[in-house]
């Protein structure tokens, strides 16, 4: 297939450039195939096949991608070097993905264990707690803490409630601004 590229490399005339030209029929055919595959993948997704789901849709996507790469991008007719380049990019990307997946799954137990113990604290209160100036968050959290422990000397966290209850609406609306403020710091 590389004939097309090389055949006239020695031509006297420098004003020539030989490449493979894909016929219109093939182009249109590929496009139709791609559309059909798109429809198939949408339909296939409607059936719940469990773990197979991802595999099927990725397989179809890969078929589509190969059509695009080999025909639309002429890789089929291209030089071996360009094929190699593209191939290696996929290989390296795949290696990268495999390693990070392998790793994140190997420590998955730790993460899950942690999630059960701790994350609720972070996530549940998170919309307020992370915005630095959100006073009500602190107030609401302080209360359960104080209640659960039999605080001996003083019971402090209860007095400041009224202030908090007025705030909610303004608080919500200012969320974007508070984010901005955190950023600009």
């Amino acid at each position: 297939m590389s004939d097309h590229v090389e055949s006239d490399a020695h031509a006297e005339n420098t004003q020539s450039c030989h490449v493979h030209i894909v016929p219109v029929k093939v182009l249109v055919g590929v496009f139709l195939a791609l559309v059909v595959l798109t429809v198939i993948t949408v339909e296939a997704a409607k059936y719940d096949t469990g773990a197979l789901d991802v595999i099927v849709s990725m397989a179809i996507a890969t078929v589509k991608a190969s059509l695009v790469v080999f025909i639309f991008m002429h890789l089929w007719y291209d030089k071996p070097l360009n094929k190699l380049a593209f191939f290696f990019s996929i290989v390296f990307a795949a290696f990268f993905l495999c390693m990070i997946l392998l790793d994140s799954h190997a420590y998955d137990n730790y993460v899950k264990g942690f999630t059960e113990d701790k994350t609720p604290e972070f996530l549940v209160k998170e919309p307020e707690a992370a915005a630095p100036a959100a006073a009500p968050a602190a107030a609401t959290d302080a209360k359960p803490a104080a209640d659960t422990k039999a605080a001996p000397a003083e019971k402090p966290a209860d007095e400041k409630k009224p202030a908090a209850s007025e705030k909610p609406e303004t608080d919500k609306k200012t969320t974007p601004e508070t984010i901005d403020k955190t950023d600009s710091k």
Partner: peptide
């Protein structure tokens, strides 16, 4: 850092080792 999307930040469920 700008939108706090929670990829790398453990407070938002992200993974710093990633």
């Amino acid at each position: 850092k700008t939108f706090e999307i929670g990829i790398f930040d453990p407070r938002l469920g992200g993974d710093p080792v990633l």
